[in-house]
Design a binder for these strands. Structure first.
Lengths: 187, 187
DNA sequence: GTTAGCATGTAAGGAGTTACATGATTTT
DNA sequence: AAAATCATGTAACTCCTTACATGCTAAC
């Protein structure tokens, strides 16, 4: 099986909570990945087909859930995760690598932290932290070395970008501290 | 000519300042779009070819710029914007539409605000503002209506996302206020 | 009765990445 | 002399968007 996209990970993660149909999945996806990008039906349904063919989810026709006029030609389809899918999801959530620290990959993984082991959560948070620290260093570098030639607007862009990175770093530090406190409590 | 990507806009904008060769363009691009994504050579050179074929830039072999061993088999190529390219760039910077307000489109356009008319700057900033306001509304909605079922981590993600949007809104408001002051000064 | 939202899909095409391929120059 | 960086490009492939195509259901 090839490397899973953030979309497939998000679908598996959503279905791990409860079975859903496609339209509902798209709405939740928008809430989940919405800050980064909106996915379209042209991406959603092929992805669901791929996951089904890989045996990670199942599709069930669901005519009962439709309105009173029962005999709809095209029934709603309910998607549910399989045992194999759950295993695969756990593996995806636990894996390390660049895709784990970048904006989208991190966002999706954190959205499913509730179903993720504390050790893995910790590793992902630390990875994200060093990714952000790199970005901060690059921004600072660019702001000081090319200081004289940067025009007002470019400087404002970079300053605001740096603010954002620093704000996220503080946030991540707080999250890591909270993880530590919980770990101490739980032993 | 089809709709230009943010990459093509960025290339034209960079070349409007001074001619550059590909490798240098890529470095500046990373500084410019870096917060959103990094572009690869596999994207850069085909884009430069496209712009050349469209007559928006020119390519000049530049063997003199290479080191002392002059007879390099493959010379560096210097890219320069044409008059047609300048016109096209101005049109791109001035256009309105969704691509003007989204993260990447806005970022690129603001990076070239120095070469953009005050009226257009104002329009782009206002557009970005309402885009952010929409996103804020959506986030608030999602945080209040589904309040009870959201787990700790999802809530943290949304809270941090909302913080970021609100921070950018304040920043945009400051920029708009600064534009107003400048406009009053300049008459 | 018509608009908006629910619901599922396909086909064509765009924009990019990764991996490959090559070679010069500079630094250590 | 090895490693890093400069420098330019191509080919295969992936993932996604846009536009199309269809039909039901609820609200106004």
């Amino acid at each position: 099986m090839r490397k899973a996209s953030a979309l497939e990970l998000a679908l598996l993660g959503l279905l791990a909570d409860s079975p859903l149909h496609g339209y509902e999945l798209k709405k939740r996806l928008t809430g989940l990945l919405g800050t980064f990008r909106a996915i379209s039906f042209g991406a959603l349904y092929p992805a669901l087909r791929g996951l089904t063919e890989a045996g990670l989810i199942t599709q069930t026709d669901d005519p009962a859930a439709a309105g009173p006029a029962l005999q709809a030609k095209r029934a709603r389809i309910t998607y549910a995760i399989t045992a194999k899918g759950k295993t695969h999801l756990a593996a995806l959530l636990a894996e390390s690598g660049p895709e784990t620290w970048d904006d989208e990959g991190f966002g999706v993984r954190m959205a499913f932290f509730n179903n993720t082991e504390a050790v893995v959560r910790r590793r992902i948070l630390e990875g994200r932290r060093s990714r952000l620290a790199e970005r901060r260093a690059a921004l600072r570098q660019s702001m000081t070395t090319t200081r004289e030639k940067l025009d007002h607007y470019t400087m404002e862009l970079q300053r605001h970008g740096l603010d954002g990175v620093e704000s996220e770093l503080r946030w991540i530090d707080d999250l890591i501290a909270a993880e530590d406190r919980t770990a101490r409590h739980a032993g």
